[in-house]
C-alpha cells in the first residue's frame, strides 16, 4: 500500500488537483486548482408524478417531484412531522413508519413507489390524551429523552411485536426452526434498527416488555 501517491480528487465533473500528497509529505501544495471543463448537468425540470397514499386512514392524492421520499412527503407535504429525519440514509431509524403493516425506513423509499399503500405513522397510533398502549408505556417507563427518535422507536416496536407473533426469527433466535420467544434479548436485537443517542434503551425495552406481556 503506498502512501503519498499523487491522485486527483473529483467532484462531479469537476477535477481539482489536490495537495493531499503534499500535505502528507510536507511538500509544496499544488499551485493552482484547475476548473473542470465538464459540461453542466442539465437543468431539467423535475419529473412530477401523481401518487395516492392512504396515511393513517386518510387518502391523499399528491403530485410530487419524483425524487420525494416517503419521509419528506409526510413531513414537508402532509405536515405529519412525527416521523423524524435523523440521517436520511437508513442509518438511524427515526423515520420508521409502517406500510401495509410492515415497518420500513421512510427515508429510503420514494413516495411514488407506494401508490395506494396504507401508511401508518406515529400520528396514526395515538394522540396526547388518547395514547396507544405503546406510547403510554414509553411515558411510564421514560423510554425517551430528547424525543427525536421516539416516534420511530414506537412505530418500530409495534410492528416488531407483530413480527414475533408472525414467527419471523431473528439473529439471536437460538433455534431457527422454533417459534421466536419474547425475551429481552430478542427485543434488543429486533429494535437495533432504531438508534437512541440519548441512550434510553434500557427503559425502552422495559416499556415494550410491558406492552408485549399485556398482549400475550
Amino acid at each position: 500500500m503506498q502512501e503519498g501517491k499523487e491522485f486527483q480528487l473529483s467532484r462531479r465533473g469537476l477535477a481539482i488537483v489536490t495537495a493531499a500528497a503534499a500535505a502528507a509529505t510536507g511538500g509544496p501544495p499544488a499551485a493552482q486548482a484547475q476548473t473542470g471543463a465538464a459540461a453542466s448537468p442539465p437543468a431539467s425540470a423535475p419529473a412530477m408524478e401523481k401518487v395516492s397514499l392512504v396515511v393513517n386512514g386518510q387518502r391523499h392524492a399528491l403530485e410530487l417531484d419524483a425524487r420525494t421520499t416517503l419521509l419528506d412527503t409526510l413531513r414537508e407535504h402532509l405536515h405529519l412531522t412525527g416521523s423524524k429525519k435523523g440521517c436520511d440514509h437508513g442509518q438511524c431509524g427515526a423515520c420508521t413508519v409502517m406500510v401495509d403493516g410492515r415497518r420500513i425506513y421512510s427515508c429510503l423509499t420514494l413516495a411514488v413507489m407506494h401508490e395506494g399503500d396504507e401508511v401508518t405513522t406515529i400520528e396514526g397510533l395515538g394522540k396526547p390524551g388518547d395514547l396507544h398502549p405503546m406510547q403510554a408505556a414509553f411515558v411510564k417507563h421514560d423510554g425517551y429523552q430528547c424525543g427525536y427518535c421516539t416516534p420511530g422507536q414506537i412505530c418500530a416496536s409495534v410492528a416488531m411485536l407483530a413480527e414475533i407473533k408472525a414467527g419471523v426469527p431473528s439473529h439471536v433466535s437460538a433455534d431457527l426452526t422454533a417459534a421466536p420467544q419474547l425475551t429481552a434479548d430478542e427485543i434488543r436485537e429486533r429494535m437495533s434498527g432504531n438508534i437512541c443517542r440519548c441512550g434510553a434503551y434500557s427503559n425502552i425495552v422495559e416499556a415494550i416488555t410491558e406492552v408485549a406481556g399485556r398482549q400475550a
Binding site: H79, D142, Y144, G147, P151
Partner: peptide, 20 residues
C-alpha cells in the same frame, strides 16, 4: 412522568425543522 411525554411519544412536539 415527564410533562412533555405525551407530545414526544405522539410526534406532536415540534422540533426546529418542523415549524411549518
Amino acid at each position: 412522568d415527564r410533562i412533555d411525554g405525551p407530545r414526544k411519544t405522539t410526534g406532536t412536539a415540534p422540533y426546529a425543522y418542523e415549524r411549518h
